[in-house]
């Protein structure tokens, strides 16, 4: 098939992760009262970024292996 699906999924998760984590770093205080005082943007953004990067690396490895 023409397209390794891990690329777009990894890329999208990484981009969303970056946006969320960046926004989480820049924001604080009051808006996190609703999420029980947890900066979910920063934490979950970091998780998504990590998952995205893992997918991208595994797609790249696969390509160089071929």
């Amino acid at each position: 098939m023409g397209l390794d699906l891990r690329l777009p999924i990894g890329l999208l998760l990484a981009v969303i992760g970056l946006l969320l984590a960046g926004f989480g770093l820049a924001s604080g205080g009051d808006i996190y009262r609703r999420s029980l005082g947890i900066n979910v943007n920063l934490w979950w953004g970091g998780v998504l970024l990590a998952v995205g990067i893992i997918l991208l690396i595994s797609a790249r490895r696969n390509r160089s292996a071929e």
């Binding site: 969303i16 946006l19 969320l20 926004f23 989480g24 924001s27 808006i31 996190y32 609703r34 999420s35 029980l36 979910v40 943007n41 979950w44 953004g45």
Partner: peptide
């Protein structure tokens, strides 16, 4: 709407 702050709300 109750738990997610801006950012996560978008997700």
């Amino acid at each position: 709407g109750h738990y997610f702050p801006p950012g996560m709300l978008g997700l």
